[in-house]
Design a protein around this nucleic acid. Structure first.
Lengths: 243, 243
DNA sequence: GCAAAAGTGTTATGGATACACCCATGC
DNA sequence: GCATGGGTGTATCCATAACACTTTTGC
């Protein structure tokens, strides 16, 4: 406020990405092996600094998504997760990181590409259980991203972002089961999602058989917020009531 | 990645505050009149730049809360809302703002103080309806904060942050009615909140009469997440189903 | 025919709503 | 006593959960 000579301090602004996907019914996150110090050799979330002083933060997130993961931001869900700016989080100096969360459909090949050679899909369980350590405060960022995803499945159509453009209800259910970590009744789930207007809409030819009756195909509907929501089973609740 | 000579750009980091409270059953936000350009004379959210390069962002938010609103961060709810960094959001240059949301109990006097002379509580309706214009992108920040608050009332104990240390169930209900903008049945609400274990706990002498039977007093319980949640009535849902 | 996966029907239960009714205080 | 606000009881309704059953394919 009182600015005679005083000038506000400048900081370095970085963008980090929590990119989640489903591979063989398990939740995975994209990690890169760091090539330079600090934390050289450690696993970290993809990310980087702003390109120049006039680059928009969201644009920088899309650029990193393209450069490090070879993913097209216009084809997947991307939202801001939070900003992490503890003074000592990066030994190089004052780096403030804006974390973004991306949800990608399951992809056939990992990310074998040009610039993204170091990137690999890792099961989130490996990080959760402590088997895999991440650089900086990236474990916290990932944890926040997972928590956000779990919550958003209930109230938003985020789950369809894990699926290909057309998908079956079973595939959608597997998303919920993987992210929530609970089994769901296939029959009730089917009716429930179809009961939410605008969540999923039928998509053409019901053919994609894996040995049983072919499932009908759907694609994501226009609705972003689910009403009524899909409530996840609450083991904690029933336990507490019994006592 | 390829850093021969290249250095990442630096940005100015600001903190803005969405401070909400309840005054005479209406939701208010704290606004300050800007004294300097840009937007001199306009209403804006309280906020400011980092003090120095090693100040933590959350600490800066607490400091602004103290300086501009004379509120003690340790006594109220404070959480990060989001980061706003469009390149053209501030004509002075590249300013990235980390927005924080604070919830304060209704206070007797507004904020008549020393440094916070320019701060005033304003009904959020005045901004919502367009009667009151805000500087920068602060209308969007406020809108995001309101949306966040509305959602969090359902799943968290945020509502108690609007109340004094001890409060009646009616007072708590008024919080929900003001933030959601809907009337709630006093009797069902009473049972519902008491049915959530750990949400509110009895607090001593039931005395605070305004002409009727004295209400029992409560204080916030240990629980942060509500299980089961308090669902808000959905007028949109019933309307859409009928059509 | 048989296995496998998808989809439909039915029922019991529990929570939410919408009330009527009772309680405790000030005046 | 009576007005005023706080608290409890209860019937109805509807969404959910649990499960049996039918349908449609590949082999």
């Amino acid at each position: 406020m009182t600015d005679e000579e005083w000038r506000p301090p400048e900081v370095l602004l970085a963008v980090d990405l929590v990119i989640l996907t489903l591979r063989s019914s398990r939740l995975h996150v994209l990690l890169v092996e760091r090539g330079i110090e600090p934390y050289a050799g450690a696993q970290a979330l993809p990310g980087g600094f702003l390109n120049n002083a006039s680059e928009d933060i969201a644009v920088a997130a899309e650029r990193e998504l393209r450069e490090e993961a070879e993913l097209d931001a216009s084809r997947l869900h991307l939202e801001q997760l939070g900003t992490y700016g503890a003074p000592d989080r990066d030994p190089r100096g004052r780096v403030v990181s804006v974390a973004y969360q991306a949800i990608a459909p399951g992809l056939p090949s990992p990310v074998a590409g040009t610039d993204a050679a170091a990137a690999e899909w890792r099961p989130v369980d490996d990080v959760d259980s402590g088997r895999l350590k991440l650089a900086f405060d990236h474990e916290r960022i990932l944890a926040d991203g997972l928590e956000r995803a779990r919550g958003k499945l209930e109230h938003s159509s985020l789950a369809t972002a894990f699926c290909a453009e057309v998908f079956t209800i079973s595939e959608l259910r597997q998303v919920y089961e993987a992210v929530w970590g609970v089994p769901l009744d296939q029959r009730n789930f089917s009716r429930k999602v179809q009961g939410v207007p605008g969540f999923i809409v039928p998509a053409g030819t019901p053919r994609r058989t894996t040995g049983g009756r072919p499932a009908r195909l759907f694609r994501a509907g226009p609705r972003e917020t689910l009403d009524p929501p899909l409530t996840r089973p609450a083991p904690s609740r029933t336990r507490e009531v019994t006592e």
